[in-house]
């Protein structure tokens, strides 16, 4: 029995979500192999090989894996799947794309977004936007699982000696889909998914220009910037900042919500944060029901005041 963990990375570094998924893999209890797939990813494979509790790194370094297209990743993982009882990956926009494909090709189900490992077969996962937590038992021999990174601590320990790195010589000729272009938002702020502090703005912020107030506080705190769906839909900020049921799931030490009402779909993405602060001019806004500290007030007054006083 072995587990194959499909690493998330940036081509130059492992993503912290991979370290959280590794903790989940250790809880499952088997030997863990890590698959690093991409183009020119030797440095990532080296980093993975030094992680504690990884017995082998499988490195698939080829042009066909560059953009992690589901058609290519799916075939690669199925090709490697034979020896593994568990195939797991941190939940992200790439793994959500290719893991169900892997499951279907293996004729097994998939368990999405687990938040606890009870045994090698039994897991907990949130359903109904986190308003209920299901305990499920996987009946298939091969278990395909995605992991909610925010629910697991990161394995940051290094082993004294790097494990073996095995190169796989398998390339996929994918004639069905083809990458065209990326429009990636460049930011010097911490990454939303792994930040320890997040300052978020909602519809109440009013415009993209006003978001500078949110960003100023975030910069003062060394925090990432987040947003509600309403703020993204209105074009104040880009889609990758959306926090919630259908956006990013976060659990920082400090989450500050400005001008966000607190719809269940938004709460689904942030209610596991350690400390929640809400600033809203409506004292009945539902966000106050989950906030450790609530301030009824105008964000256009509170944000600059707070930024200047910190």
């Amino acid at each position: 029995m072995m587990t194959l963990l499909v690493a998330e990375h940036t081509s130059t570094a492992l993503a912290s979500s991979t370290l959280s998924a590794l903790t989940a893999a250790h809880q499952i209890g088997h030997d863990v192999h890590v698959l690093v797939a991409g183009n020119n990813i030797a440095a990532v494979a080296d980093a993975a090989a030094r992680l504690s509790g990884v017995s082998k790194v499988i490195c698939a370094d080829a042009g066909c894996y560059e953009h992690a297209l589901a058609e290519s990743m799916g075939d690669l993982i199925v090709h490697l799947s034979e020896h593994y009882s568990h195939i797991i990956a941190p939940s992200n926009s790439e793994s959500k794309d290719f893991m169900p494909r892997v499951a279907a090709l293996l004729d097994v189900g998939q368990v999405s977004d687990i938040c606890a490992v009870l045994s090698a077969e039994q897991f907990k996962r949130p359903i109904y936007a986190g308003n209920a937590i299901a305990t499920v038992t996987v009946l298939d021999d091969k278990k395909v699982i995605t992991v909610r990174a925010s629910a697991f601590d990161r394995t940051t320990q290094q082993s004294a000696q790097a494990c073996e790195i095995e190169s796989v010589d398998f390339s996929v000729e994918n004639r069905l889909s083809c990458w065209q272009s990326d429009d990636i938002t460049a930011s010097t702020r911490p990454d939303l998914a792994s930040a320890s502090r997040i300052v978020s703005g909602g519809r109440g912020v009013g415009s993209g220009a006003n978001f500078a107030l949110v960003e100023a506080l975030a910069d003062k705190l060394g925090a990432a910037v987040g947003a509600s769906r309403a703020a993204v839909d209105a074009g104040f900020v880009s889609n990758d900042l959306q926090v919630g049921q259908t956006g990013k799931i976060v659990a920082p030490d400090l989450y500050m919500a400005f001008g966000i009402s607190g719809a269940i779909q938004h709460l689904a993405g942030m209610k596991d944060s350690k400390v929640i602060v809400a600033v809203n001019k409506d004292e009945d806004a539902p966000i106050f029901q989950v906030a450790d500290y609530g301030l009824v007030g105008d964000l256009f007054v509170v944000l600059p005041e707070m930024t200047s006083k910190l």
Partner: peptide, 9 residues
């Protein structure tokens, strides 16, 4: 819609 922004395929 991907984690870092947008991707066209």
């Amino acid at each position: 819609e991907i984690d870092g922004g947008l991707r066209t395929i």
